[in-house]
């Protein structure tokens, strides 16, 4: 256990060659600006992958979500005539 020093003990010993602090003019220092964290450490806003997939689908691909072959296959499975396929999938835009 340490003992609190008595008032008789010199707490601060100043060097003989040090200039006196008394009379020093206080300098106004600007507040320290917080350092910007690197991008990897910054919290990121997350988005669902499906949102990005839809965005890129719109940006990159043809307007039709399926190929002609797949539409033909769907038409065969559901017995759609050419006219019906045109009405739903291939009408003039």
């Amino acid at each position: 256990m340490t003992k609190k020093p008595l008032p008789t003990v010199l707490e601060y010993v100043s060097a003989a060659h040090a200039a006196p602090k008394r009379g020093r003019v206080a300098e106004a220092t600007p507040a320290k600006r917080p350092r910007r964290r690197p991008a990897a450490a910054r919290p990121q806003m997350l988005v669902r992958m499906e949102e990005v997939m839809l965005f890129e689908m719109d940006a990159n691909s043809a307007p039709d979500p399926f190929t002609t072959e797949e539409i033909d296959r769907i038409a065969r499975v559901f017995g759609l005539s050419t006219g019906e396929v045109t009405a739903l999938y291939r009408f003039a835009r």
């Binding site: 307007p63 039709d64 979500p65 399926f66 797949e70 539409i71 769907i74 499975v77 559901f78 759609l80 019906e84 009405a87 739903l88 999938y89 291939r90 009408f91 835009r93």
Partner: peptide, 21 residues
């Protein structure tokens, strides 16, 4: 036609619906 596809029992109808342009 859309109602007919929605009334189908085949799950593939979901793709047929998604493709409607």
């Amino acid at each position: 036609l859309t109602t007919q596809l929605l009334g189908s029992a085949d799950p593939l109808a979901l793709r047929a619906i998604a493709a409607i342009a």
